[in-house]
């Protein structure tokens, strides 16, 4: 701030550090050190390890060059996981994000009674652990005793009853939808806050022009909310790259690796198959995907979001 300007504040780090010793030590140096040890170094070490073969125990790691990456290119399970991540992402963008927007809009437009109650109900699962959510739906979706299939049978839709977690064609979608159920509250509150920031006059002007809700959403709300959408899309991208908990508690990648995603494949290869080098190579792939997505989005979207 301008208040602390002095002859030392010449915009260089040394000048700043001399003027603000306390802030430099505890506000910059200590956090950076901690960051370097627990976040920076692990990233670098993962890249390093991806060029080695290691079972996690042996004192010597064997240098294998790009062998892990060459293996990866022919690994069927890698491609299954990659495609599953893409499917997961599409489900996440379609279901929780658009539904979250719809709920926020309908509440803001005062089309429903008790909007705050609905908001609370939809937001609550955001605070639940995905392990608990997963177990909950394991019970609800049980083909014999579960509430969902019982409901389907009782309304004459018994032909829809499935092994929701066992059928390889739908298991992944079951997981992604459950994840969406738990995530919807997030886009909802972001859009709700975003809609609150749109000047009321903008909506009023459109209403005077005779715009219906469909037009209002398409021509006013969505364009105005583009920055919010960008943040949500980014959050969703990273959430789907992180997908792990539901798979660990519900399917462990089964049946036949059809529900595996990259985040879980890394864990399996490293800690179950003891192929730490290969696990590291898979990690690097995730990092590259996450990094390029972040660069792409950050450059475009968050430019100006921080007043830096």
């Amino acid at each position: 701030m301008a208040s602390s300007a002095s002859r030392f504040d010449d915009g260089t780090f040394v000048g700043f550090a001399r003027r603000h010793v306390f802030v430099t030590v505890f506000g910059v140096a200590v956090p950076l050190l901690v960051f370097a040890c627990f976040i920076g170094y692990p990233i670098v070490y993962t890249i390093y390890l991806s060029f080695f073969e290691w079972n996690g125990m042996a004192p010597q790691k064997k240098f294998v060059g790009f062998a892990n990456y060459a293996y990866l290119l022919h690994d069927k399970y890698f491609y299954i996981a990659l495609v599953n991540n893409a499917k997961w992402l599409v489900v996440s963008l379609v279901f929780p994000v658009s539904l979250g927007f719809l709920i926020a809009y309908v509440m803001k437009a005062r089309l429903v009674f008790a909007p705050s109650l609905l908001r609370t109900i939809v937001f609550f699962p955001v605070t639940m652990s995905l392990i608990a959510v997963g177990l909950m739906f394991l019970l609800i979706l049980n083909p014999v005793f579960g509430a969902f299939d019982t409901l389907l049978r009782s309304v004459g839709l018994g032909f829809l009853v499935h092994e929701w977690f066992g059928d390889y064609r739908i298991a992944l979608y079951t997981l992604a939808v459950i994840s969406g159920w738990a995530f919807t509250g997030m886009p909802m509150i972001f859009y709700f806050a975003g809609l609150g920031d749109v000047p009321k006059e903008t909506f009023d002007a459109a209403r005077i022009e005779g715009a219906g809700h469909w037009r209002m959403i398409r021509s006013v709300a969505l364009p105005q909310l583009r920055p919010v959408t960008a943040i949500i899309v980014m959050l969703t991208l990273f959430e789907s790259l992180r997908a792990f908990d539901l798979i660990a508690v519900l399917t462990k990648g089964a049946p036949f690796g059809m529900t595996n995603v990259l985040g879980y494949l890394v864990y399996m290869e490293s800690f179950w198959n003891s192929r730490f080098g290969y696990g590291a190579a898979l990690s690097v792939v995730i990092l590259v995907i996450a990094g390029s997505l972040a660069a792409l989005l950050l450059g475009k979207v968050l430019k100006g979001a921080f007043d830096v």
Binding site: F16, V23, V28, T46, L49, F238, R242, S270, S283, F306
Partner: peptide, 30 residues
């Protein structure tokens, strides 16, 4: 929030890295 820390762009970059990092990728070194 209160000071003009030099290199704050970089600091924000690091913060976002920590925020976005998929934890599975650093399990082995950790």
């Amino acid at each position: 929030s209160r000071m003009n820390v030099p290199g704050r762009k970089w600091i924000f970059g690091l913060l976002l890295t920590g925020l976005m990092l998929p934890q599975q990728t650093v399990l082995i070194p950790l």
